[in-house]
Write a protein that binds this DNA or RNA. Structure first.
Lengths: 137, 137
DNA sequence: ATAAGGTTTCCAGTAACTGGAAGGTCAACC
DNA sequence: GGTTGACCTTCCAGTTACTGGAAACCTTAT
């Protein structure tokens, strides 16, 4: 299976697959002509990686998860720990973004957005801090 | 005002302030000894930048906002457009992360997390797609 | 023979810093 | 005057996870 086929099967761009080989996440074989040759297992691993990345796991987390995935004697505790840590990270990000959104949407709502120079958004960013206009660090 | 003072006043690390000078976001003066010398306006702009960055605006957005900020004849419409675009981005990110969180927290909940090798998280990532275990791209 | 469409490697760039090295400066203390 | 310690300077490299592009090779069809 050549790389474009592997790309289609896994949903990852060919460039990304080459990169994953570079950093030793996958180790496809090679044909006589030098082209990469992906086995079913390679495709399966790439699909695994695509899913884990879609869930926001870092490459290093993916490397660990993939190692655990192929080790049938692993304990699920280790996997759960990685996933739980990542879940906590995601929840922190959601909280941060939600706070940003609340502040920003308030600023946007109060800005008339016409051709007048007066702008509560810039005033808010510029340091006029009072009441709900305050921007948290 | 030297850089460590500016850092304290703006809440930005000194390294970041030097970087902002590098990319021409601020242009502090220099003392005879070569040390940077920050004016009140510089500090004010740094504080503006710190706030805008805390709201997740990109550096290039910050550059545009800062230019609009110092241009008292600007139209608020342009500012509102940048802010609204950014707000939309943030909302997209929140939605993406929320979807990740939902999938991942489901997987984490179903994993017993002990020393047994059986693990629904890995099974979910590995391609067993049925019902609510399916992972969205 | 050549053209189109694969594939290969390698190099550079992205965003926004951050760490570290090597060296200059300043204020205080002995 | 010398030395220590805390500043400051510049510059270079590394981070994350790719992505774009160039130059060149392979395959298949016309």
């Amino acid at each position: 299976m050549n790389i474009s086929h592997a790309a289609k099967a896994s949903g990852l761009p060919a460039k990304t697959i080459r990169y994953y080989e570079d950093i030793a996440l996958v180790k496809p074989g090679r044909n006589a002509n030098g082209y990469r040759d992906f086995s079913e297992v390679d495709i399966h691993n790439l699909t695994f990686l695509a899913r884990a990345r879609a869930l926001g796991f870092s490459i290093e987390d993916c490397r660990a998860l993939l190692a655990l995935y192929t080790d049938t004697s692993r304990a699920s505790a280790e996997v759960k720990r990685i996933a739980q840590d990542h879940l906590t990270e995601i929840e922190t990000k959601i909280a941060d973004l939600t706070a940003m959104r609340d502040t920003l949407s308030h600023l946007v709502r109060t800005c008339h957005g016409d051709d007048r120079p007066d702008c509560p958004i810039l005033t808010g960013l510029g340091g006029a801090q009072h009441g709900s206009d305050r921007i948290q660090k």
